[in-house]
Design a protein around this nucleic acid. Structure first.
Lengths: 221, 221
DNA sequence: GCAAAAGTGTTCTAGGTACACCCATGT
DNA sequence: ACATGGGTGTACCTAGAACACTTTTGC
């Protein structure tokens, strides 16, 4: 038992992890095993350890509940409406993250009954205020496309330019002009052309590219 | 005494309140009366009440410690490094705000020994990690100038265009072209020209303007 | 040879930047 | 009359938007 002269809220982190799968924007949810909202889908997340950094907590809870690790995470916003959790006062520090679908594998953890990807525009009802958090995360991600290289975090080590364009289109929800897109993307200078090509289907093979500095997100403008 | 099965961190809000005074960007600090950092200058802020919204907490603590109320406040970032407070684990939800210097009056509250404005570029040593918070708040404010009308929150009810320009220049830290600035600002359509003029000094009087919707911050681009 | 995606340039437009002089007032 | 900040328009330049055809492959 822990005692305080003043009441303390609990602090959690919750993660909106986006990916691109099957040409759609999807995000990772876990099915809650316990009350409240038992059986309901929710963002992966959980209580902050008392000696743990917030960023660390977000990464740890994500891994514990979904098996996913090593992805790009960024703090989004802190939600603290008094009635957002019926058990006790909970302050949720929300994060959002990006991961390439094909390099990560999802497995449900102990606290979560299951972990699965859902299309952004076909989400089940979510626990707590998690629908609001997803909404804000999507808006923030879309806004950051225009002044950072954050979207490259959704790509595997090697990829075609068409694939990059598909990432942008699905996040922004509108088609982009191929020639303009390629010119502007390459002008950023953060892609490295390789000598390899990708053959798939009845058409001309596409050149493969790499990100020069895959671990860092650059800002411009 | 309050009991929990798991240890809980404390949660505070801290506010970086900016204003423009004497042609400089200044911010409001309070002198701490208690340990830790007693006698040191710090951001106004304090512990979250257990049934209180985060936004409300920021506004309440600001008013209690400095007498300032009714200003524009916006959540900035949440700081939670484990050792940022020597007493116990403290998660600080930081806010930043803007207020016109001439319409607000500052008076120290009970917890704070004194409240005073300091120039952004001549701050005293600050308690905790507050210098980092100020740094981030300034960067965020400067970034928002380019895609929102947030800076208008620093203006009194009536003002000259030169005064608006001075606000932008002092936040960005560089001079702007007068003709371009006025054209672009007026093109936003959020200012209302009045018939009044302001006479001060040996020169032509300047026309006074008002913000059409003073309570709202518009975003564009 | 046909279907399917890859790849490639130019023109137009709009918004941003650079720049200099006259105006109204107080002393 | 002169010093001081207020007020105004145009030319240039660059970045973004619109737009269509040829290439390479598998079947």
């Amino acid at each position: 038992m822990y005692h305080y002269a003043q009441p303390h809220p609990a602090v959690t982190t919750d993660v909106v992890l986006f990916t691109i799968r099957a040409g759609r924007l999807e995000l990772l949810l876990v099915r809650r095993r316990h009350e409240p909202f038992a059986g309901c889908w929710a963002l992966p997340g959980g209580f902050l350890d008392i000696d743990e950094d917030l960023d660390t907590c977000a990464a740890r809870e994500l891994e514990e509940e979904t098996g996913v690790r090593g992805v790009y995470l960024e703090q989004l916003y802190t939600f603290g409406a008094p009635e957002r959790d019926p058990r006790e006062r909970v302050i949720a520090v929300a994060y959002y993250g990006l991961a390439p679908a094909d390099t990560i594998e999802v497995q449900a953890g102990s606290d979560a009954g299951a972990a699965a990807w859902f299309a952004r525009d076909a989400l089940p009802g979510l626990a707590f205020d998690h629908a609001r958090i997803v909404e804000l995360a999507h808006r923030r991600l879309a806004a950051k496309l225009s002044y950072s290289t954050i979207a490259l975090q959704l790509l595997p080590r090697e990829f075609t330019l068409s694939r990059v364009q598909a990432v942008y289109e699905v996040i922004l929800g509108r088609p982009l002009d191929k020639r303009n897109f390629r010119r502007q993307l390459l002008a950023l200078g953060c892609l490295q052309e390789t000598d390899e090509h990708q053959r798939d289907g009845n058409h001309r093979p596409a050149r493969l590219y790499r990100v020069r500095a895959p671990q860092t997100v650059a800002f411009f403008k």
